[in-house]
Design a protein around this nucleic acid. Structure first.
Lengths: 247, 247
DNA sequence: GGTATGGTTTGATCTGTATCAATGCGAGTC
DNA sequence: GACTCGCATTGATACAGATCAAACCATACC
């Protein structure tokens, strides 16, 4: 294999196979999952001219909260976290972006969150100005962006319910089922093996918990034989248990 | 005054003056705050043909979660709550909509939350199909919808931080400052008098707290001379205190 | 092999908020 | 004026999850 092995999110998972080779959209395996799915084959070429491949190392910051939006990104391999930080250091992750996810939906002037690479990441980068021009010419592309934005909004509301009303155990179950569903979409099939490239602290900051509570809850689930902790994530033993906890 | 006095959100507040009189967009005082601000005067007439005024009583349900989207609404007077309910009855409010707010940004097939009138409400109602057609013809209108949706998304992220990382006292302070800011935009000037047409339970369900904690926290603030509880809301005595608590 | 290093787990204890249970209080209504 | 009815407030107590502290365990590096 001559693709960027290090940029794979995890183990045998997506990433390598989805890497956009040599900026050629025709070879892009995450295209059907991405914003580009709104376009016709003859339009890929025009969009391709606006984009370049870019790579970020683990822990690298793609953009900082309040930065001017210069570029927008589609993640093609790896995982990033979207972070809001309070003055006193408290953090809330508003999401994780996986291969196929588009960052910069808002078309606004400045970023409202930081984006940080959890694993090595490859992305397809668009200049803001040129993409804005493209949007002006292709109303159906704008419609696709709008659909994606309102879908995000609906997911954000789901997450508000999680943060405001679920218990620690329910939060963890909902989180694992969410990540499972998202990997399934990328891989084309669901698996009980859930890779978790993010650390416990990231999970805690996503779920509004502390790292200790996340660790304790996952280990409780293991002791109750609902899952097994494996080096790169978890393996679910009893999907019914997790489904039952997702209200 | 011959306008719908009962439909005013509260006391001397907006609502009456913003009522859309006889379906005439030219007389609509909330237009500059609403989705219509994206349009030119000669376009108001074309949009007006798609819309009718409609009125809802206090406690009436405008739409139910999972209902098909038949109509979209701009609130012209009164206040509604956006509600997600879990199977076991736990509730999370994802927001309040005030005069000028548009409901149905997503253009999706079904609603992802219920909408319930907290006060008597008047709204400008659009048929989904006809508005979709309108959107197809006016890309700049779609752009305005998209901007509004991504702004909502940013506010949703703010609320995630609140739900996940703030204390009860900080949540209440942030809530009061949010409502203050939104009334200020509607009224054209900020006031220390914050009308709160929603009950304590609604505030609790918006902030991820219980009604008792909301009550206790507000009364603590009163005992600390930071605000006074008045019949229809609160009056802030020390804005600095509240600003300081908003991280 | 030894030993830093960064993250994870585990234990003991504390506390902010929930829960349970009255009580209070204003607006309607008879 | 008395009596609901639907909130809101207040008090006593419980507990989920936070906090503080230590041990554990890979991995990387000398």
């Amino acid at each position: 294999m001559n693709c960027l092995d290090e940029a794979r999110p995890l183990g045998a998972h997506a990433g390598c196979s989805h890497h956009v080779k040599g900026d050629d959209c025709r070879l892009c395996l995450i295209r059907p999952l991405s914003v580009c799915s709104a376009l016709e084959p003859d339009e890929w070429a025009s969009l391709e001219k606006l984009s370049t491949d870019i790579r970020f190392e683990e822990r690298e910051t793609l953009v900082r909260e309040a930065d001017d939006v210069v570029s927008l990104y589609t993640i093609t391999a790896g995982v990033v976290r979207l972070v809001r930080t309070l003055h006193d250091g408290r953090r809330q992750l508003t999401g994780f972006a996986l291969p196929g996810d588009f960052l910069g939906l808002s078309l606004e002037r400045t970023w409202t969150f930081s984006i940080e690479a959890i694993t090595p990441v490859t992305a397809c980068r668009f200049g803001r100005a040129s993409l804005m021009e493209y949007v002006d010419q292709k109303p159906h592309f704008l419609m696709r962006l709008h659909e994606m934005a309102t879908h995000e909004l609906s997911l954000a509301q789901d997450h508000m319910v999680l943060l405001g009303r679920l218990t620690a155990e329910e939060k963890l179950a909902a989180f694992l089922m969410e990540i499972r569903r998202r990997w399934a979409r990328i891989e084309g099939h669901a698996s009980d093996h859930i890779p978790l490239p993010m650390g416990r602290q990231d999970i805690a900051d996503y779920l509004g918990l502390t790292i200790e509570t996340v660790s304790r809850t996952i280990n409780q689930m293991q002791r109750a034989h609902q899952l097994v902790i494996v080096p790169d994530g978890v393996r679910l033993l009893n999907i019914g248990y997790f489904e039952h906890l997702c209200p």
